[in-house]
Amino acid sequence: MTTKTSLLKVILLGDGGVGKSSIMNRYVTNKFDAHLFHTIGVEFLNKELEVDGHQVTLQIWDTAGQERFRSLRTPFYRGSDCCLLTFSVDDNQSFLNLGNWKKEFIYYADVKEPETFPFVVLGNKVDVTERQVSSEEAKQWCQENGNYPYYETSAKDATNVAVAFEEAVRRVLALDERTDHLIPTDTVKLHRKPRSAGTCCS
């Protein structure tokens, strides 16, 4: 496990303008651009990192938050290993929408066991002085919805960004280890049966 590099797909979801693209850019290229345009559809970047001795290639998918881009983004939820639900601490509505984002993700990603799926909640823009969402409110929501880890981040001054992604990786790895034990009990071999020649339908 330690020698192999595994590819983990994490996806950033949340209202438009909460800073999903900025968080991704801060984490991968360590840059911040205050004038990013709306993301259209989806975008992604890869980042290699080591967490607790595991070599991981993190594939971070950034999505469009606006409602009108919904049909473009939802097909890419599938196969996600972790979902980062993002809101902005200076925008109460984006916080209230977290539940909708969670629902949308579970539906389109076709998550089989929503109770155990690793979500991480990010409250971005903590550098802004006028907050509309307090830490307590946010923590309480996380507590009530499945005990999700909560991080207050700022893509602008890089607060907690790396920490949040590393936590996401830890959550996924922890889940993998748990399921690893289960695998031997009931698995279906997907290896193709050797076919006799001549049955090719093409």
């Binding site: 693209s21 989806v42 992604f44 950034d62 473009l72």
Partner: peptide
Amino acid sequence: YHSSLASLNGLEAHLRT
């Protein structure tokens, strides 16, 4: 390179599907 990479990745994913 960096300002376009993520968008190109995304656009490629969209067009491919």
